[in-house]
Amino acid sequence: MTYCVGLMLERGLVFMSDTRTNAGVDNISTFRKMHCWEVPGDRVMVLMSAGNLATTQAVVSILDERTKATQERDPSLLAQPSMFQAASLVADALHEVIERHADAGQRADAAFNATLILGGQIAGGPPRMFLIYPEGNFIEAGEDTPFFQIGETKYGRPILVRAFDKGLSFEAAVKLLLVSFDSTVKANLSVAAPFDLQIVETDALVLGRSRRIAPDDPYYTAVSENWGRALKNALDLLPDYEF
């Protein structure tokens, strides 16, 4: 399992993903689940993945190879005129990989599923973000749905629903994400640091600040400890139940 979140702010996009991959309690590994492409001044894209590791790695490999291909029959993310068409290309690649497993006798709706978040900006258009399903269809973030989660979403969602505001600074958004991720880590062993962070600033058309946040990162440790204390203090301030 994994946990990835993409936020749409007035200032741009913020992405965070964990790096834990497990096939049972005795087979735990660290893999990057965030992948980026950029043509400075023209486009920037970030892809995050949750689900079967073989499926997501195959999708990323296909997309990477197509960025280097010269044949027109191999459509490239770097040649798409809009983020919508880039999302369509990624969705087709995901569906293609899953169908390949299905043709080999595997169930496409079972072990080989994967879900993706694609966000970025292409010159001439606004920043956009899409949630791409295993079936190859997708939805777009907007005013009513300003963030997407994939993977183990339920534990980190309450803080996002309560505290997200599109006017947040990038710094405040990172703090919010770390609380969301920490809540998930505390509740589920299949999600863990290090976390990968990527910021895409509106109209910069270049990858912004990025960082890998280690389990012992001082700021993450402070957020985790202070948030735990704040929750306990808030609980203590509530009146006790009376029988």
Rank of each mutant, 00 (worst) to 15 (best):
G136T: 15
I28R: 08
W227P: 13
T30D: 09
G119F: 01
V14E: 04
L237P: 10
W37A: 01
A111S: 03
V90E: 05
M45L: 03
N233K: 13
A79Y: 06
I122N: 00
G120F: 02
S210L: 00
M83V: 04
Y133A: 09
L207T: 04
S61Q: 05
Q85K: 14
A86S: 08
D74T: 06
Y219N: 14
A111R: 12
G41N: 05
L176M: 04
N22T: 06
S61Y: 01
R66V: 08
N226G: 04
Y155R: 01
K186W: 04
D64T: 09
V39C: 11
A214K: 09
E65K: 01
N137E: 10
I62C: 09
L53P: 11
F112S: 07
Y241D: 15
S169E: 15
S29I: 08
D109Q: 11
F181S: 02
V25D: 09
K175L: 03
P40M: 00
D182T: 11
L13W: 00
G151N: 10
L168S: 04
I62H: 09
F170G: 06
M8W: 15
D182G: 10
G228L: 00
A234T: 09
Y220I: 02
A110M: 03
F170V: 03
T221I: 14
D216P: 08
Y219D: 12
E242F: 12
S76E: 04
A192C: 15
S210Q: 06
L9A: 05
R229K: 06
M45F: 02
I132D: 10
N27I: 00
D203K: 01
A222R: 04
L118S: 14
A230Y: 15
A141P: 06
L94G: 00
A104N: 15
P194T: 13
A192Q: 14
F138E: 06
P218I: 13
M83A: 13
